[in-house]
Design a binder for these strands. Structure first.
Lengths: 129, 129
DNA sequence: TATTGTACCCACACTACGAATGGTACATAT
DNA sequence: ATATGTACCATTCGTAGTGTGGGTACAATA
C-alpha cells in the first residue's frame, strides 16, 4: 500500500484516502479479493488517526468497493472495479435539484428552503409561526 | 398603522413586520381591501430601511395576504384572512423530508446530502471525483 | 414632477452549523 | 491476550448564509 497523503492539501484526508484506494483498484494494483491493511495498521503507516482511516473504509464499503469481514479484516470487493464508476453523488444531486425546482416554482424563498432543509435533516418538524 | 418594531429583539425586523401585519389582518384591524402605507412611508415611520419593508411586503404578497397594485399602492388581499392560516413552510418541509428520506435510504451520508443540496441551490452541477 | 413598487449593485458583521480530526472504549472472535 | 471493525463524545476551525444597510435607477401613472 504505497499511498501518499498530502496533509497540506485542500481536500480532506479521508477523501484523499478514498480516492487513492479507488485509483489502485482501477489501475489493478489492488485486485478484487485482495486484503487491505487494517484500519490501525494503515493509520499508523500514514500517520493518520484511526477514525480518519475508518471513515474512508466506511465510505468505500458503502459503495461496494471494499468489504469488511469483521475480525477477519477488509478485502477488495469482487465488483469493485465496476462500482468505482458509479456516481452516487450525481444521483443525489438530481433528486435534490428536482425537489428544489418544485419548491422554487411555488414561490418559496431560498432562505425558507434552506431552513426547512435543515429542519428535515434534523428530523424535527417545521415549527409554526 | 401602529406597529411596534423591536430592534433589540431576536427575530429579524422583516419577520416582525410580517407577523404584525398578519396579526392586524386576523384581528380585523386591517380589513380586506384596506390600503397599506407605501414602502417608503412605512420605512420612514418605523425608521427602517426601504429594503427591509420591501422584503416583508414581498413575502406577504407571495402568501396572498396583501396585493400590490403598482403605482396605486398596496392593499389587503380579499382572501387575506383565510390565507393567514395557510402554512407554506410545512409543505416545504414535507417535500424535503420525503426526498431526504429517499436519499438516506440509499445509504447516502448526511454530509453528501448537504453538499449536493448546496450545489443544487446554486444551480451548479455536482462535480465528479 | 412626484409617487408607486421593483430591481440592481455592493458591503459588512454576526452567527451558527457542519466538517474534520482526536481520544477512548466496546463486543466479537481467534 | 490480541486483533478486528465500530460507536460515542469532545474540540477546533472554517465558511456559508443571513440580515441589514446604502445607493441608484427604472417604468408606470397621476
Amino acid at each position: 500500500m504505497e499511498i501518499a497523503i498530502n496533509t497540506e492539501g485542500q481536500s480532506p484526508l479521508f477523501a484523499q484516502l478514498v480516492e487513492q484506494i479507488k485509483q489502485r483498484v482501477l489501475d489493478k494494483s489492488l485486485a478484487p479479493g485482495a486484503a487491505l491493511p487494517s484500519i490501525r495498521q494503515l493509520a499508523n503507516d500514514l500517520q493518520l488517526n484511526n477514525k480518519t482511516v475508518a471513515k474512508a473504509y466506511q465510505l468505500l464499503e458503502r459503495d461496494q468497493i471494499i468489504q469488511t469481514k469483521g475480525y477477519r479484516g477488509t478485502f477488495v470487493h469482487p465488483d469493485a472495479i465496476a462500482n468505482c464508476t458509479i456516481d452516487l453523488a450525481a444521483w443525489v444531486f438530481a433528486q435534490l435539484a428536482e425537489t428544489i425546482e418544485t419548491l422554487r416554482g411555488a414561490g418559496t424563498t431560498d432562505s425558507e428552503i434552506r431552513i426547512a432543509f435543515a429542519d428535515a435533516m434534523h428530523n424535527r418538524q417545521a415549527k409554526e409561526n
